[in-house]
Every structure is written in C-alpha cells, then in structure tokens.
C-alpha cells in the first residue's frame, strides 16, 4: 500500500492506496491502521483500496473542527469526493463501521454496497460494551482478541507490553487517536444511529467474530434487524480485531458484496 495525502475542506487527509479492481473505501477502527495491515493487503488482492486515516490518526494532522458525528460523517464524504470516487464499496471496521453506516444513512442513494465489520454505534443495555477508554494497555488484548496471547504479540509487534518505550509510543498515539475517537465513542458509542439505519438502501454484509468480547455478537443481530436485507457472516474463533486475527476470512465475507 502506498501512503498518500489529499486535500479536504478542513485538513489534508492521509490515506493508503493499493490494489486493482472495483474501488473500495475502507474506514479503520479506533485503534487505527498502518500501511502494512494484513487485512488491507488481503482486500487489495481483489479491490482498488483507499484507506483514509481519520484526522489525528497515524502521522495525519488533527482537526479541531470535527467535533461530532455529523461533522465526521460529512468529512468522510468529503474525502470520498476528493478521491474522485462515486459509489465506492464502503467498508468499515468497528468505529469505521459506525462512520460508514452513518454515511449510508445520510446519503442512501450514494452507497449501494456496504460492509460492516463488527461496527460500533448501537448500545444494548443488556450487553454493555466494555469501556476501552478506561483500560490500561495490558488489559486491552483480553477484550480485543480471541487468542489473547497471539493477539498481544500482534498488538505490540512482539515487544513486551510493559516495555517502557513501547508504552510511551502507544500512549502518545492513543492520546491523539483515541482523543479523536472519543468524539463519537466516548463515553457511550451511541450517537443516535439506530434511528437512522432504516434509511440505508445498500446491499449490506455484516461480519462478526463469534468470540468478540468488546462488541458482543448480540449486536450482530441488532444490526441485522435494523438494516433491511442485511446478510450476517459469523467468523468462528475470531475476536473484535479479527481483521488482524482472521484477515482471509473477513476478506472472503466482504467479497460477497461483489
């Protein structure tokens, strides 16, 4: 994947581009994404992938003008426009899925294919989502991965999770990235999306890990009910970060969109 930058109304936006095929816009989750992400590589085998970073993520510029859900939804439409894309396949993971679903709800005629990978955005009182904003780094793998030990190694690139240099980098990155994510996810990741999902017209594929301990599989059914005709693909032995744990399976599910 190649790292590029494009101008938008508020800030220059960093994005990764690669692959050949139908254009697909991929929106990352609250943990962010890097150019060597295995899931992006997988998608690029089949699609022309554009993966923009939300402002403040990675090395991209922060944006004080983006404060709430509508700002972020419209900003992301601005990015699609700036990339010169019309009705790309829209795919998002977790927070990115929440943004993608909002985009499809505000502009239902501009999105005909929608892939939602364990998206945030709904809240079920019987299944409260753990508060990742109040978790210490060493506590995260247990809620993010099906295989906690392997997941920890994926998260830290093999470094010990209490390694001071890794910790410092992680915390600085979190302050920027989760600071931005908090605008739509803190303290409860519900910005009223459930009232708008009826508007979505896109062919929709929902992908959920059976072992998701952050946004429990009960949410998959709530989403399926909320979006007319949505298809649910369950992935066994996969946690919330299944794009890292099972990139092949997730990409295969997304391929159902065509």
């Amino acid at each position: 994947m190649e790292a590029k930058t494009i101008k938008t109304q508020h800030v220059p936006v960093r994005y990764f581009e690669g692959g050949k095929g139908a254009p697909l816009v991929y929106l990352h989750g609250a943990g962010g994404i890097t150019a060597d992400d295995p899931f992006l590589a997988k998608l690029a085998e089949r699609y022309h992938v554009f993966a923009p970073l939300l402002p403040g993520y990675g090395d991209s510029t922060e944006c004080g003008e983006l404060r709430e859900m509508l700002d972020i939804t419209l900003h992301t439409w601005d990015v699609v426009e700036a990339l010169g894309l019309k009705d790309p396949i829209l795919v998002g993971h977790s927070m990115g899925g929440m943004i993608a679903a909002e985009m499809a709800a505000v502009a239902p005629n501009d999105v005909s294919r929608l892939g939602l990978i364990c998206p945030a955005g709904l809240w079920l009182d019987d299944h409260p989502i753990p508060d990742i904003f109040a978790m210490l780094p060493y506590e995260l793998p247990a809620v993010l991965f099906h295989d906690v030990e392997a997941g920890t190694a994926l998260m830290t690139a093999g470094v010990r999770i209490d390694d001071p240099e890794w910790l410092k980098g992680f915390l600085v990155q979190n302050a920027r990235q989760l600071g931005m994510a908090g605008k739509i996810l803190f303290p409860i990741p519900d910005r009223g999306l459930s009232q708008r999902l009826y508007r979505v017209k896109a062919k929709t594929v929902l992908v959920w890990g059976d072992g998701d301990k952050l946004i429990a599989p009960a949410y998959a059914h709530a989403w399926k009910k909320a979006i007319n005709g949505a298809e649910l693909v369950s992935i066994p032995e996969a946690g919330h970060l299944m794009t890292l744990e099972k990139p092949d399976h997730v990409a295969k599910a997304i391929a159902k969109l065509g």
Partner: peptide, 15 residues
Amino acid sequence: GFADAPGYRTIKTIQ
C-alpha cells in the same frame, strides 16, 4: 485507567 482519558491531556505531558 481513570487517570487520564485520551484527549484530555496534552501529548507533551504524557511524554
């Protein structure tokens, strides 16, 4: 985990 919500404090302070 409650000491410092991401985005509350500046990067410099964390460093």
